[in-house]
Design a protein around this nucleic acid. Structure first.
Lengths: 132, 132
DNA sequence: AACATTATGTAATAATATAACATTAACAAG
DNA sequence: CTTGTTAATGTTATATTATTACATAATGTT
């Protein structure tokens, strides 16, 4: 389970926005949305995003420079993330598959090295887009 | 095996530079390096990078916005990439592990969906940095 | 030769992210 | 209950990464 963490004012505003969004949100889209709440500068957004990523409330989709709320209550604090990304409609879902996460968390490379963290992004066409 | 592909002038200049580099290179570092060869504008670099990524000669390390030459002669044209990244010295290596690539290429999510492409980035400390 | 495709050149600008500095809030230790 | 510490905020400026738009040249195909 995620450790409870009390969000600060800006962190809460920004998390709530991302959490309500159906799609991943980009930093400047977030900025635009929260300006009416008094968050005026990019840095305020990026600082909140950094913290939210750090505590595992959100994840960054690296290939898209966008952020989504964690959908996975047992997420290992952003240390082990996997996403499916539709290359047509850009829908992103967090993959919550214990076999996959076990496999990757225990993965050793050919030199025997283990890793403390990973991020995996799968690409393809979602059901909707495939049937079009 | 990678399909042979004749690189254009700019593509070749930029590929050679990346290929010789020990570390992943960022676009503007590349630009700086190739200015003496007549490549003056960011777009010239990005166009070459796009093409090189498309044909699998280089890969983008998404979490670092940087590019490395493909180390894997049997790489499936950039459709299936895995990297290890040292969070201390930023050394990046391409992981060439057939069990891993088989596992991920055949992965089905819980809805049964298959993916045509993936990118995986592992993070940790490399041997050198661990022993420090 | 005509056409299509790919690559190039150039300028401007958009989008993403951080540095530097000052201030305030939250919280633990004595 | 105040001192010291850490985390969060506010603000300005700037650095970094990437694309749009438009014009031209090179290459490959029929």
């Amino acid at each position: 389970m995620q450790k409870e963490y009390i969000l600060s004012k800006n962190q809460k505003i920004i998390f709530d926005l991302i959490d309500k969004s159906a799609e991943p949100m980009k930093a400047y889209a977030i900025l635009f949305n929260v300006q009416k709440k008094g968050i005026k500068a990019p840095l305020q957004v990026y600082r909140a995003l950094d913290k939210l990523v750090e505590i595992g409330k959100i994840h960054k989709i690296e290939s898209r420079n966008a952020f989504i709320a964690c959908q996975n209550s047992s997420c290992q604090i952003s240390k082990a993330t996997a996403f499916s990304i539709c290359e047509s409609c850009e829908k992103v879902s967090e993959i919550n598959n214990s076999k996959l996460s076990k496999y990757l968390s225990n993965f050793e490379d050919d030199s025997g090295m283990r890793y403390s963290k990973y991020n995996l992004e799968f690409f393809g066409l979602c059901k909707k887009c495939k049937s079009k």
